[in-house]
Amino acid sequence: MAEGKFTQETVSMTDAQKKAQRSRNIIIALVLAAFVVLLYFGTQAKLGANILQRPL
């Protein structure tokens, strides 16, 4: 963990911090996308044909 320095309104990050933030963002995006796919197909597997039963 390194300390960030404020320059006026913004925070300036070191190259290492930028790289770490980018890596974290990529992983979060991938995990969220995988989670959505997993829920989509998981719901189909769980409900099967019942997925079409929608009482009106």
Binding site: M1, A2, E3, G4, K5, F6, Q8, E9, V11, M13, T14, A16, Q17, A20, Q21, S23, R24, I27
Partner: peptide, 23 residues
């Protein structure tokens, strides 16, 4: 405000954690 941020600047930490650290 900017002043408020500046006074707290010493307390602010920016993470350098890589995904592997979370793993």
């Amino acid at each position: 405000s900017v002043e408020a941020i500046e006074t707290k600047s010493d307390d602010v930490l920016i993470s350098s954690a890589m995904p592997g650290d979370y793993y």
